[in-house]
Simulated scan of single mutants.
Amino acid sequence: MPSIRFRLNGVATEIVADPASPLLSILRGELGLTGAHFGCGSGECGACRVIVGDRAVTSCDTPLWSVAGKDVTTLEGLGNPERPHPLQRAFIAEQAMQCGYCISGVMMSAAALLMQNKRPSEAEVRSALDRNLCRCGAQNRMVRAVLTAAEEMDAP
């Protein structure tokens, strides 16, 4: 089997696997990163979103070969308990989650948005999160959390 090289959460990574393997199965099964969740398996729910380059993608339908030579960021790469990312702090402060299943995908969509647009409008945030399914009803709090994080990240 061929070797695929990419940067994962800022670290050079090399995986020997079937290039057609879904990125999600490599992240969870081979690398032990469980932040991205398996939801629908067809790229529709957003629970498995990660950032490739500066775009949020569904990792369940992203083949491993397509990330060769690229930067991949998972929820684990955003922050940690000692130094949480502004999005993580804002989601906690706004109580913008309930069951938590969709949250990693939502945060990755939001992080990709903030990489591309430091001061998004509410409508832009809603649009960026639109493809992340959440059944808990915390969407308004999620939008507030993203806007709060954007303010913090843009502050001098």
Rank of each mutant, 00 (worst) to 15 (best):
L8S: 00
S25A: 12
M97F: 13
A155P: 00
A17R: 10
T74A: 03
L113I: 11
T73L: 10
F38T: 04
R144C: 00
P22S: 15
L133P: 06
L75E: 04
G105M: 12
N132V: 14
L33W: 10
R5S: 15
H37G: 06
R7F: 08
A47Y: 09
S25G: 08
L78F: 07
A20L: 13
T148M: 14
S127P: 03
R126I: 11
F91P: 00
S66N: 09
G39E: 05
Q98L: 02
M97W: 02
P84R: 03
C48I: 11
S66G: 00
T13R: 08
V57T: 09
R55K: 15
Y101D: 01
P2Q: 11
P120L: 07
A93K: 14
T13S: 10
E44R: 10
A150K: 05
V143Q: 05
M153R: 02
I92W: 00
A155G: 00
L33C: 11
T74P: 04
M108I: 11
S104E: 02
Q139S: 10
A138K: 00
L147S: 05
C48H: 12
Q116G: 14
C136L: 00
I92K: 01
C40W: 10
A68D: 09
G46A: 12
E30D: 15
A17D: 15
P156L: 09
L147K: 05
L23I: 13
H85L: 09
A56H: 03
D71P: 04
P19W: 02
V143D: 04
E94K: 13
A96Q: 07
C134E: 04
E122W: 07
V67L: 10
R7T: 13
D130Q: 15
R5V: 12
M108Q: 01
W65Q: 12
T58H: 08
L24Q: 10
G29F: 07
N117T: 15
P120G: 05
L129K: 09
T34I: 05
A128S: 13
E82I: 02
R7M: 01
N132P: 05
L23D: 12
Y101S: 01
M97T: 05
L129A: 08
I4A: 02
I92Q: 02
E82D: 11
G35Y: 03
T13Q: 04
D71W: 08
V57C: 09
L24H: 11
A12S: 13
K118D: 09
G46Q: 07
N132T: 11
L23V: 13
S25H: 14
P63N: 06
T34V: 09
V67M: 04
Q95M: 03
I4T: 13
G43Y: 00
D154I: 04
D130L: 14
V146T: 11
G39Q: 04
A123R: 11
C45E: 10
R131I: 01
M97E: 00
